[in-house]
């Protein structure tokens, strides 16, 4: 299962990252490399800092010290260079965050047209292909609120993919979904993983981790406690925290 499709090249590097919310340390001594083509699932109890970790990678959360590099380039401060870098990092949110005043199609074409300066016709063509791929092409003229949660999340994935990102971040992409819609989103993500997309996925879906992940990163109290291949992690966790966590979620 673990075979890296592209050459060994760290796309995301986190070095001694520290993050505070006031007195509370949300991220502690984070060191993590993510190779091109790798799928990394981040799990851990709530409040463990896994979402924060995900959000620091495209600087939606700033960090207090340490450094983060994307494809070898240090994450810039605010400004045009940060925007440029963000366009290379796709992000999918727990609450979808589709632009409420724009149609499904406009949601997907906006980035390519405004950031990549693609002509409208070209952007539309690519967007329709992406919507087709995630199975919502027939909804292209509707507004986000007219779609189910699962459909909205698939559009959100298409929106991120439209930027042709180097890496995709998923911040609990199925947590806000009704159970019957979870699989339609996971299916899209599994396909994406198989195609070689570099992905960081914060999730509670152990099935996805087993099926698609190269590595599982287990976090607790803002620290990375354990990193392992999925099979290894689920069958033979090393740390007491991981054992405790797994015993709680797997019995349900």
């Amino acid at each position: 299962m673990i075979q890296h499709t592209s050459e060994q090249r760290p796309l995301v590097q986190m070095r001694q990252v520290q993050k505070f919310f006031g007195d509370f340390q949300a991220l502690k001594d984070i060191d993590l490399d993510i190779q091109a083509g790798e799928v990394v699932v981040v799990i851990g109890p709530s409040g463990s800092g896994k979402s924060t970790l995900c959000r620091t990678i495209n600087r939606l959360e700033t960090i207090d010290s340490g450094e983060i590099l994307i494809d070898g380039e240090k994450l810039p401060e605010e400004g045009a260079r940060l925007a440029k870098l963000r366009s290379d990092v796709g992000m999918v949110f727990q609450s979808f965050n589709l632009f409420a005043h724009k149609t499904i199609l406009e949601n997907v074409t906006l980035g390519p047209m405004k950031v990549r300066r693609l002509p409208a016709a070209k952007a539309k063509e690519e967007a329709m292909a992406l919507l087709e791929r995630v199975g919502v092409a027939h909804q292209a003229q509707k507004y986000p609120a007219q779609l189910s949660g699962g459909q909205q999340q698939r559009v959100a994935i298409a929106r991120a993919l439209a930027m042709k990102p180097k890496v995709m971040l998923f911040d609990e992409p199925t947590s806000a979904l009704d159970p019957e819609m979870i699989n339609e989103v996971l299916d899209v993500m599994v396909t994406l993983a198989k195609e070689g997309m570099t992905m960081v996925v914060v999730t509670h879906e152990m099935g996805f981790a087993r099926k698609a992940a190269n590595r599982v990163v287990f976090m607790a109290d803002g620290q990375i406690v354990e990193v392992a291949e999925p099979e290894e992690f689920f069958t033979n966790p090393q740390s007491a925290r991981a054992k405790d966590f797994l015993s709680k979620i797997l019995t349900h």
């Binding site: 939606l60 925007a83 992000m91 632009f99 950031v115 930027m163």
Partner: peptide, 11 residues
């Protein structure tokens, strides 16, 4: 989240 999503695609 609207502004975050906008910034995330590089606007």
């Amino acid at each position: 989240g609207q502004a975050e999503a906008a910034r995330a695609i590089g606007l």
